[in-house]
């Protein structure tokens, strides 16, 4: 079924080169900043007061994403076990 074969790790693919990763980071930050700047042209329709603050999607996304990771890691302290736990 599986015709996979273990090959020596190769890091030559253009997608995994350090320069590509650096460029992707630059691109990501640039698009993120652009998406915030775009709010000056296309105004989101706020439903409440907090989401009327400029760049709401950006800062709220960063905050909630960070909070999720922190809560997840904290919860893991209590519930994480070796995956052979039930064996």
């Amino acid at each position: 079924m599986a015709d996979d074969k273990k090959l020596p790790a190769d890091h030559d693919h253009w997608l995994v080169r350090e320069s590509t990763i650096r460029n992707l980071w630059i691109l990501l930050i640039a698009v993120f900043v652009l998406s915030i700047a775009a709010e000056t042209v296309w105004h989101p329709h706020p439903h409440f007061s907090l989401d009327a603050i400029f760049g709401f999607g950006a800062w709220f996304g960063l905050l909630s994403g960070f909070a999720l990771v922190v809560v997840t890691k904290s919860w893991a302290i209590f519930v994480k076990r070796k995956d052979t736990y039930y064996d």
């Binding site: 698009v31 709010e39 989101p44 999607g57 996304g61 994480k80």
Partner: peptide
């Protein structure tokens, strides 16, 4: 605009905190 901001923020958090999200041979 608002949706792209949310998703791009999520992307940044994921890759910025990638070391924290590294998987281990564990279950919760």
């Amino acid at each position: 605009v608002s949706q792209f901001q949310l998703l791009l923020a999520g992307t940044i958090v994921f890759f910025a905190l990638l070391k924290w999200l590294k998987r281990t041979e564990t279950i919760s």
